[in-house]
């Protein structure tokens, strides 16, 4: 059986269906968001330390950054 290619090894070509411009008056490029929005719509690529659970680590980040809610992408537990 041929090896399954990992999702991160796949190159996805973009095909154009129609042309249009975007109006600079609305929205922002992700990296140009205001500090408040940048955090609100942000993700941290965290290096989890050994010991605490993923849940505990997420709670610490929430407290450090004084946020209301955080979520984590995939529990990393024993």
């Amino acid at each position: 059986m041929p090896r399954t290619v990992a999702p991160w090894e796949i190159e996805r070509e973009l095909l154009v269906k129609a042309e249009d411009k975007t109006n600079p008056r609305y929205g922002y490029k992700p990296e140009e968001r205001s500090a408040e929005d940048y955090m609100k719509y942000g993700v941290i690529n965290l290096d989890k330390p050994a010991g605490p659970t993923s849940h505990e680590v997420a709670a610490w980040v929430k407290r450090i950054l004084k946020l209301q809610r955080v979520g984590h992408g995939g529990t990393l537990e024993a």
Binding site: M39, K40, Y41, G42, V43, I44, N45, L46, D47, K48, P49, A50, S54, V57, A58, V61, L65, L67, Q68, R69, V70, G71, H72, G73, G74, L76, E77, A78
Partner: peptide, 16 residues
């Protein structure tokens, strides 16, 4: 267990 644990802040939790 250590390593990559993406933490999604506030509104970005929806991409988790």
């Amino acid at each position: 267990m250590t390593g990559v644990l993406p933490i999604a802040l506030e509104e970005s939790r929806k991409v988790v």
